[in-house]
Design a protein around this nucleic acid. Structure first.
Lengths: 112, 112
DNA sequence: TCTCTATTCAACCAACCGGTTAATCAACCG
DNA sequence: CGGTTGATTAACCGGTTGGTTGAATAGAGA
């Protein structure tokens, strides 16, 4: 599976997005990450594996703890991907688009 | 399921992202959308239903055709969601962050 | 060493996903 | 009307997912 699909699939789960939100406040262990959720520690461990394979987190080693750290690069990628479509939602982009079109057609007209 | 999860799940499939890319060039019928893919028309129809439920497309009616149109609002939403994490990837944002911190601590120090 | 804590691995299960084929619906056209 | 085209629905299938419980591994500490 391609990288982008892995990232989108990882983000499709609310629990995993909540884990990322928590990691935005700093590193955390598996137990700390699992604490807010009404699911087993093993389930959280699986979620972390999915996030890790998507490149959204990395895991270190501190004695018997495995501190998790947020990796934002894939988020930059999906943001950039979505930005491809900005012209379909951004009015100002439309006006910029018009402006660019003017620059292109204007001089051509003057060449006549 | 919450809206954001639906959108991410819809985008997790490469075929569906390709369909969106095609729709960026303008409306298209189901047959036109299905043409590039080595899968059945019914499979494409299912993909379109997923995209529609995620709010990424709308479908009109023109005789026996069902023209599909791109709806970019959910893409704006996921872009905005990802932007929450910009400070974790953008160096310039870090420097802005430092600057804002300076503005905050500076005057406070002067109040002494 | 034995024990406790943190975490992962393994096996299992119900539900979902992406695909198929066959049947059905909807609208035009002769 | 009957036939053709465009599209959806239904039933099915194998693989994946998100959860469970139970066993296993890794390291700290008495």
């Amino acid at each position: 599976m391609d990288r982008l699909s892995l990232v989108f699939a990882a983000l499709a789960d609310p629990t995993r997005r909540a884990i990322l939100a928590r990691l935005a406040d700093g590193e955390a262990t598996v137990n700390q990450l699992a604490e807010p959720f009404p699911i087993s520690l093993q389930a959280v461990s699986k979620h972390l594996k999915v996030l890790e394979q998507a490149g959204l987190i990395t895991r270190g080693r501190d004695a018997q703890w495995r501190p998790c750290r947020l990796e934002a690069a894939p988020l930059r990628d999906i943001s950039a991907w979505a930005e491809q479509y900005r012209r379909f939602w951004d009015e100002r982009y439309d006006r910029l688009d018009d402006y660019l079109r003017t620059l292109q057609t204007g001089p051509t007209a003057e060449e006549k």
